[in-house]
């Protein structure tokens, strides 16, 4: 999974896909996870990192991240890379 090039995210959670002209709004957790995806972190690294700071179980976190990624793919923000 990787994020499509050119996609810009502001800290306020505004995301613009310049290729399509679509814009989105994310909550802070959405911004954090998208940045981690951008940095190429694995699911495990993400869950570890978030659960250190937030009051959430690993299993819920894992489900939420998977669900979130599904939405990102649906919105054309993530694309499947060959080595996935």
């Amino acid at each position: 999974m990787r994020i499509k090039s050119n996609i810009a995210i502001s800290d306020s959670g505004f995301l613009l896909n310049p290729a399509t002209g679509e814009s989105f709004s994310l909550n802070p957790m959405g911004v954090a996870i998208l940045k981690m995806v951008k940095d190429g972190k694995s699911l495990e690294e993400m869950t570890q990192e978030i659960s250190q700071d937030f009051d959430v179980s690993l299993s819920i976190l894992e489900r939420d991240i998977e669900d979130f990624k599904g939405t990102l793919t649906q919105y054309g923000i993530l694309e499947n890379s060959k080595n996935d």
Binding site: S12, L16, S23, S25
Partner: peptide, 11 residues
């Protein structure tokens, strides 16, 4: 600029 749209739609 999209910044204006971002401003009204986010805040």
């Amino acid at each position: 600029d999209i910044a204006e749209f971002q401003q009204i739609s986010t805040f």
